[in-house]
């Protein structure tokens, strides 16, 4: 069957199935199981209000449980197992982990990931804050924001192509078509550089891609937060003779600290999961490996599910503090 047709059928079946389920189950509950008439009318009505929320929630809980909650547990179990002959899995304790910790590639991935986690959220949030503040009172500020926000819509893979063109190196005697080498030679560089093959620094060239994408996100949110600052606090500071830098760092930034933290953690999570950029640009060569790509390597190239799952659990472990913090905040807010 043609995939487009299959897609169309799936939409129809999926949508009408969903609506049919919700409509039918509510109808069943109201008319057949617990009708609001007869001797038990009162009891039926209160009972069905107990059941109904779960009718509404059932498909979502099923999908969430199956696609997000169960895999966490299953991956944890897989990470303690090894696949032997004939696909039989045996429990091996922490062997996958110890084996992984001993691998130089893993140490490299961890080191790079820490670097990413320090540099990307800080730079993206910093640039975002700068852009938000600068465009705030500008007449063409909205257009400027639109353009800085635009990379958000571009895929990591698309961005990888865009930046590969920037980093492109050509032999010394012909015209450079990569901007970076063009500028490098213009400002006195000796010869064109293969930027992505220079260990340590190449990680930063990859990070630039993610910073470029995430800055717009930070800017949009911080810009809204800046606008939410009460005018009076700023006016009072001006009357007291504060200079613009003082107003920014001592009046504005403290008031939006909460938002800055939210932006920072959101970008941190995105950074932890970064896969496409490294996969498309260097595939972990030249010491640019990161955890997500390392895990993909183990799972689908080396076909080592135990170690791949162990790597995935490391990513989960790194996310957990943020997860706990988010849940804590959400609960605090609901009270």
């Amino acid at each position: 069957m043609h995939p487009a047709l299959l897609g169309l059928i799936t939409i129809t079946v999926g949508v009408s199935g969903c609506i049919g389920y919700f409509y039918g189950s509510n109808l069943l509950l109201d008319k057949v199981l617990l009708p609001a008439s007869g001797p038990n009318a009162g009891r039926n009505i209160s009972r069905r209000e107990l059941i109904r929320p779960w009718l509404f929630l059932f498909p979502a809980i099923l999908a969430l449980g199956l696609y997000l909650a169960y895999p966490v547990v299953a991956t944890l179990i897989l990470s303690f197992q090894e696949r032997g002959a004939g696909g039989v899995r045996t429990f091996v304790g922490f062997e996958n982990y110890t084996q992984m910790f001993a691998e130089p590639k893993f140490a490299e991935a961890m080191r790079n990931n820490v670097l990413w986690l320090v540099v990307v959220p800080a730079s993206a949030t910093g640039f975002g804050l700068l852009a938000a503040q600068l465009t705030d009172r500008l007449r063409w500020g909205n257009i400027a924001k639109s353009i800085i926000f635009m990379p958000m819509a571009i895929s990591f893979v698309g961005a990888a192509v865009i930046f590969k063109l920037i980093y492109e190196a050509r032999p010394e005697d012909v015209a450079q078509i990569g901007v970076l080498n063009h500028l490098y030679l213009l400002f006195g560089g000796a010869e064109p550089q293969q930027w992505l093959t220079i260990p340590f620094w190449n990680s930063f060239f990859l990070m630039a891609v993610l910073i470029w994408i995430q800055t717009g996100f930070a800017m949009v949110i911080l810009s809204a937060a800046l606008r939410g600052i009460p005018e009076e606090t700023i006016e009072a500071a001006i009357i007291d003779g504060a200079n613009p830098l003082q107003i920014f760092f001592k009046i504005k930034v403290p008031q939006i600290m909460g938002t800055i933290v939210v932006v920072w953690t959101t970008i941190t999570i995105a950074t932890l999961k970064v896969f496409d950029i490294v996969f498309a640009m260097t595939n972990g060569q030249w010491e640019t490996q990161v955890l997500a790509n390392y895990m993909y390597d183990k799972l689908f190239r080396a076909n080592d599910w135990g170690m791949g799952s162990a790597a995935a659990m490391i990513i989960m472990l790194l996310v957990t503090p943020i997860l706990v913090w988010n849940v804590y905040n959400a609960r605090k807010e609901m009270r």
């Binding site: 997000l68 895999p71 299953a74 991956t75 999961k273 799952s309 995935a312 990513i315 943020i322």
Partner: peptide
């Protein structure tokens, strides 16, 4: 925030 990497296998 659960990384979808966990869900793959």
């Amino acid at each position: 925030v659960v990384p979808l990497q966990l869900a793959l296998i």
